[in-house]
């Protein structure tokens, strides 16, 4: 037992309060320009995924032999590719692929992760040990290789990508949830609730579950960014939706043969991936910071 009087004294001035009876004034939430831009981009992305024609009415597969490899300009903002297809139209139509794969894979990973994590965190030590070791073993496989193994069994395509990325990222989520569950189970307020005479199921439902599951959406947003990145990588290797589907990674792969003469075919879809992941990370981190602030 250690006894501390007064706040811990560190070199951080932000924690200095003049009146100890007056809690620090909480700052009102004001989103910065970065967060706004990231949010706007994500909204655009969702619109593009839901109804791409609203943003880019042209056909993403329509080739125009008269306008092959034309650079970005007034007619084609992102230029055209080796078949004369409009790159912007294809990027817009590709959003659906990326988001579908990302969201579905994250859903698998988060759902499975939460269930396994809760199971490990709430059950007996033996079950926990067995589950944890299995998760350890599963995370020993590098994500990309595990995905390749999955594809070797199930063949390339969207469904394979979803399954592969979902399973490969599941152990991480399961571990986080398990850790959080143990933390909450051993926390002071759960112990205190025991002294109120609450039954175990009631304790779990009222105190453990809400505090474990609360941060999960935040995790999911950041995990979604990783899934989109992984999907692009696997598609680049030819394991995802097959050409001529306008998938971002696949577009890069197709365009890289023309890199020397027409950089826009491959670089611009790549930048779409980067912008998506950056936006998701910015929004996710901000949410997380707010969440942590609320719990402190």
């Amino acid at each position: 037992m250690t006894v501390t009087l007064g706040p811990p004294l560190t070199d951080a001035p932000a924690r200095i309060r003049v009146d100890p009876t007056e809690p620090a004034v909480r700052r009102r939430f004001r989103p910065g320009p970065g967060l706004l831009a990231a949010g706007a981009y994500l909204v655009l992305l969702v619109v593009a995924a839901a109804s791409p024609a609203a943003l880019a009415p042209a056909d993403p597969l329509a080739a125009d032999p008269l306008a092959v490899l034309s650079p970005p300009g007034a007619g084609h903002w992102f230029g055209t590719d080796h078949l004369g297809r409009d790159v912007l139209t294809r990027v817009v139509h590709g959003a659906g692929h990326s988001l579908t794969i990302g969201v579905a894979a994250t859903a698998i990973a988060v759902t499975g992760g939460v269930l396994l994590g809760l199971l490990a965190g709430l059950t007996h030590r033996v079950a926990d040990e067995a589950l944890s070791r299995t998760l350890d073993a599963l995370s020993a496989f590098p994500m990309l290789l595990l995905a390749l193994l999955f594809i070797a069994i199930a063949g390339p395509g969207t469904a394979s990508l979803i399954g592969a990325i979902g399973i490969a990222t599941l152990p991480h989520h399961a571990r986080v949830v398990r850790g959080q569950t143990l933390l909450v189970r051993r926390s002071g307020f759960v112990e205190q609730a025991v002294t109120f005479g609450q039954s175990r199921p009631r304790l779990v439902l009222r105190h453990v579950l809400p505090n474990v599951v609360g941060p999960v959406p935040v995790l999911a947003v950041i995990g979604l960014g990783e899934a989109v990145l992984a999907a692009a990588g696997l598609s680049f290797l030819g394991m995802g939706p097959q050409p001529p589907s306008p998938e971002w990674g696949a577009m890069l792969s197709e365009g890289r043969n023309y890199l020397q003469v027409a950089w826009w075919i491959s670089i611009l879809p790549g930048l779409a991936v980067t912008a998506t992941v950056v936006s998701l990370t910015v929004v996710g981190r901000h949410w997380q910071a707010r969440f942590d602030g609320r719990r402190r």
Binding site: L229, G249, R256, S266, I267, L271
Partner: peptide, 10 residues
């Protein structure tokens, strides 16, 4: 961190 490594490479 957010950029696919193949894009960096290209």
């Amino acid at each position: 961190v957010s950029t696919p490594s193949f894009l960096i490479g290209l």
